[in-house]
Amino acid sequence: MRRHLNTIYVTSEGAYCRKDGANIVVEVDKQERGRAPIHVIGGLVCLGRASISPSLMNACTEAGVTISFLTEHGRFLARVEGPRSGNVLVRRTQHRTADDPAKSLVIAKGIVAAKLANQRTVMRRALRDYGDAGSLADAEKRITHIARHALAATDIDMLRGCEGEGAALYFGAFNAMIRHEDPKFAFQGRSRRPPLDRANALLSFLYSILGNDCRGALEGVGLDPAIGFLHADRPGRMSLALDLMEEMRPVLADRLALSLINRRQLAVSDFETSETGGVLLNEAGRKTVLTAFSERKRQTLRHPFLGEDMPLGLIAHVQAQMLARHLRGDMDGYPGFLWK
Rank of each mutant, 00 (worst) to 15 (best):
D330Y: 02
H73K: 10
V112W: 03
L196N: 04
G164F: 05
S269K: 07
S104Q: 13
L327H: 01
L260C: 07
E165H: 11
G228H: 03
G313C: 05
A267F: 00
T66M: 07
I261N: 06
R2M: 03
H149R: 15
G336D: 10
F185H: 06
L56R: 02
A50T: 15
L223D: 08
I41R: 08
A267M: 07
L56P: 02
I8R: 04
L240R: 09
H317G: 10
G189R: 09
R190N: 08
C214A: 14
H95E: 09
G34W: 02
R264D: 13
A324S: 14
D270A: 03
E295H: 12
D155G: 13
R18A: 07
P183D: 10
Q299G: 13
L290Q: 13
G86D: 10
C17W: 00
I41A: 12
S51G: 05
A232H: 12
A147M: 06
R286H: 06
M1E: 06
D224E: 14
G43P: 00
I178N: 06
P54G: 05
E163Y: 06
G161F: 02
S55W: 00
A167C: 11
V106M: 12
S51C: 00
Y9P: 01
H73W: 08
N262R: 11
A15S: 15
R148S: 13
T11Y: 05
V318Q: 15
L218S: 06
G333C: 10
P83Q: 09
T71W: 07
I178T: 07
L169N: 06
I38F: 10
Q188P: 00
L116V: 05
A201K: 03
V10A: 08
D330K: 09
V25Y: 08
L327C: 03
S53V: 04
F293D: 08
P311Q: 07
F69K: 05
L258E: 09
S53Y: 01
I111L: 15
L266P: 03
C214M: 13
Y334M: 07
S191D: 00
F76I: 01
H149G: 13
